[in-house]
Design a protein around this nucleic acid. Sequence first.
DNA 1: AGCACGCCGACT
DNA 2: GTCGGCGTGCTC
Length: 823
Amino acid sequence: MYAKVIVDVPAKDTNRAFDYIIPPSLEPWVEVGSRVGVPFGSRVIQGFVVELRESSDYELHKMREIKHVLDPIPPLNGELVELSRWMSRKYACHEITALQAMIPGALKAKYERKIIVSGPKAQPPVEDDREREIIDYILSKESLSMEQLLRRFPADGPLLKEMLIRGRLAEEQEIKDRLSKKTVLTVFPPENPQLLEACLAQLPENAKRQRQLIEHLQTNPEPVKLADLSKRQGISSSAVKALADKGWIALREVEVFRDPYENRVFERTTSLQLTDEQQAIYDEIAASLRMRTHQVFLLHGVTGSGKTEVYLQAIEVCLNQGREAIVLVPEISLTPQMVERFKSRFGDWVAVLHSRLSHGERYDEWRKIQMGKVKVAIGARSAVFAPFSNLGLLIVDEEHEASYKQEENPKYHAGEVAVARGRQSRAVILLGSATPSLESYHRTQTGEYKLLKMPSRVQGRPLPAVQVIDMREELKAGNRSMFSRALHQAIEDRLQKQEQMVLLLNRRGYSTFVMCRSCGYVAGCPHCEISLTYHHNSRTMRCHYCGYAERELNSCPSCKSAHIRFFGAGTQRVEEELVRLFPGIRVIRMDVDTTNQKGAHEKWLQLFRSRQADVLLGTQMVAKGLDFPYVTLVGVIAADTVLNLPDFRSAEKTFQLLTQVAGRAGRHHLPGEVVIQSYTPEHYSIQCASMHDYSRFVAQELKLREAREYPPFWKLILVTLSHGQIPLLVRAGETLADEIRQQWRRLSRHATDAGGDGRLEVLGPVASPISRIKDRYRFQCMIKYRGDVAISGIMDGALSRLEDTVSKEKLQISVDVDPQMMM
DNA sequence: AGCACGCCGACT
DNA sequence: GTCGGCGTGCTC
């Protein structure tokens, strides 16, 4: 048998499968999706089996054997391997990069080289004292690298080298997982229960605890954790060990899954009665599931319309069919509340993949999926790769969220991947949002997706009334405060009624830069064209691109003024102002400063939930998915900050944010009110959001996008080139742009003959918005195209023209298909 | 990505 | 004459 293997070398000329012989001893273990160790050149590296074959077209004598199979159960399956191939084409990444993205970090290969003593031990060759000392040292250590050895014997470089050449020492390479399997000591009763009787007879009178244990095992013949025995029965480990030593019982390490929710009790819930609206939608999804065909639904449900209950019941249909389900949620809304709803309904059938979990916990949750112990996976972006083999339903909640796009390689969009995976495994895809992305909405118009609508809130609760305040008028009226008169009054009113409010400060770009108020100097990174970020706890300024750090400044390096300070997200200023205007007000401020610590986010929210604060003040993070019954006022301090960003999606983002945050108000029995402050209140994104009018917004925005030749009508690919020298970059950028145009002309000639209607444009090269990172300058080309364009052929052709510069000059090229961030 | 192989300059 | 610099090419 032969295997085609994608090896762990992310480079252009290794981006293909290599053939290996499967030795008979490994045959039962090697499957498509197996992770294997294979000899490659002069080393052994990790790879993934992507195909099994009876014969091979590669020359037999050149072929080598698979060395190891790294996991007893393959971490991937045929379906995921196929998906990785799709990803590598769609996102122009190496196949191995896509495969690696599918497995948990704990399984990412770690190559370790260690020095071992080799050669015949029985007849030691000539050894002097020095050599003996070195060998003894190596033997005394578990594992040792050459670097460590040289550090210990700095003067013996030549001797060590000689020993390596002579073969007394050898270097061995190991593929190691970064994982630890957690085990617990477990007591096993004997197979034959009668032995317990015999044991009791032999135990001395004073062995009270041992006797107790045996009696316990007689009534409970299941294996039991040592820790439980001491905790619940008061039987100490020494008593257990004594029995084990005598051989009556067995004591073994047993692998356990770390359960991050193990100390939580989830009250079981059952399906709620659906509203007519929910029911109609549920029926449609259920019908599609029962037909077992692929279908993508876009569920447009206003905030508070009860989308989650529809999800839960759809999953139930799927599980009853014996199929599995994945739920993707944006990281930020993967709150305890959300997890609780799923845990409560499906209990132990749910695995939660959360970035806040430790490496080990995450790995364990993933293993539950891999081993078929759970049927539902809920998690952020990467949960789309949950290794189920009989997937029936894939839900993408808040599908418009930008966090579904991974900004590192592979630069995939989890929603797009979900659709591709669903197509492959004939699963139903359910995209849900109160503010669907223009891309998805557009596809409902072209017939690719089916639109489902839930326009009303459950129990007939009204959407909150929204007031848009023109801040220019406030200024004219002499109000120079950051709170309009309307918002001021609304806050006062809530304080009096002891109701709660959420205040959103929609801030621009990145936070906390350091600026001189006298001359406008901004502290920047000397290696990157970006301002430094102020870190409160360490009193340093850091670059979040390259890690450069320096101490906080006391005076301006440019004008020597002492009026230099950091400009926070502004939430601090708002907080100060609130406290000044409303003495005694209790404010919880949530921003990067206050939520950096693990668990802080949840802690603050819990505090707010228990009504120990009046105001929840924060940035974007307060807008998403939160649900507090006593929140009756939502205030947006400045709605237009995102609007002014140089990004074609800024109107869409503004509309989404305002709609989402407005949805936080009045979700329960108390009616809600929303106050939006703006300097451009006439803007359609603000107007439409204030009237809860999604249809009008998309209609207008789609018209604009088409006119301006932007997505969803045109597709974008952003190619960023980086290098230390600007002239080389400009040259390379121009080559790239020319080459793309040429390739396009060449290919479109045929396409036009065949009736193709494609169009393509290349913009640039221009300097990237962040024009330098780690002393490398950055230039970019934007490729825009629509219709019938063989884009991957064009890109491949153009990029291969730059290959020489990449390898010789270390030019770096990054390709971002469907980029989210324009800046 | 690594690593071997190979062809040129600075030394024991 | 050898050691070692890194440019080039290959890995089933």
